[in-house]
Amino acid sequence: MERIYSEVAEQLLLIEAEMRRLDLWAAQPPSAEALASTEPFCVDTLTLPQWLQFIFLPRMRQLIERELPLPRQCGIAPMAEEYFRGDAGGKLVERLAELDGRLQRG
């Protein structure tokens, strides 16, 4: 596996761990209808943590497992900054910014 895949996989684990630490990790998935939203980031049906857990992280893991091209632009950290606005999500925002940066470097 290329180095980028292992580095991104590690970042995904760190993001999951931080979400769990912040008690943002849901035990039950949202409804199928909520997951089927066509809006960017499912803003009309999911919270940012739900989108990360049930859409983004699984899709990124699939790309890594299949060694498919990873996105070069994610821009999730600014979304997270807005979502948390000074709340306790600082470390999670940091982790997402690190992932954004790693993907940009390719």
Rank of each mutant, 00 (worst) to 15 (best):
L92T: 02
R61I: 04
Q53L: 06
C42E: 05
Q62R: 14
E82D: 02
Q73S: 04
S37P: 01
T45L: 00
E81C: 07
R85M: 00
L12Y: 14
A36M: 03
D44S: 00
L12K: 13
P30W: 06
L35M: 07
F54Q: 12
A27F: 13
L22S: 08
L70R: 13
P71N: 02
K91W: 07
G89H: 09
D23G: 06
E94F: 15
G89Q: 08
Q50L: 12
L13D: 05
R21C: 00
E82W: 07
P49T: 02
G75I: 04
L57R: 09
A32R: 05
A26Y: 08
Q62A: 11
A77S: 15
C74S: 15
P71D: 02
R59F: 03
A36E: 07
A32D: 08
F54P: 05
I76N: 00
P69Q: 15
L52N: 03
R20G: 01
A36S: 11
S37E: 01
Q53V: 04
E67R: 12
A17G: 02
E94G: 10
D23R: 15
E16L: 12
Q73D: 06
A26M: 09
A88Q: 15
A9E: 15
A88P: 14
Q73C: 03
L70A: 08
G75S: 04
E81R: 14
D87W: 06
Q73H: 11
R21P: 00
V93S: 01
W25R: 06
E81G: 11
T47K: 02
L63D: 09
A36C: 02
G86A: 03
E10F: 12
E33N: 05
E67S: 01
G89C: 07
Y83T: 03
Q28W: 10
L46H: 10
R85D: 02
R21Q: 00
A27S: 14
E33R: 09
L24N: 11
R72D: 10
K91I: 09
E16C: 08
M60K: 06
W51C: 14
T45R: 05
P69S: 15
Y83W: 15
L14T: 00
E65R: 14
Q11Y: 10
A32T: 05
R66Y: 07
Q11I: 02
L24T: 12
A27G: 12
P49R: 04
S37H: 01
I15W: 01
R61E: 09
E82A: 01
L14D: 00
R20E: 08
G86V: 05
L92P: 00
G89P: 06
S31D: 03
A32C: 00
R72E: 13
A80P: 10
Y83F: 14
W25Y: 09
P69C: 12
P49D: 02
L12F: 13
E39W: 08
A26Q: 12
P49L: 03
P49S: 00
C42G: 04
F56I: 10
L14Q: 07
E81D: 12
W51R: 14
R61Y: 03
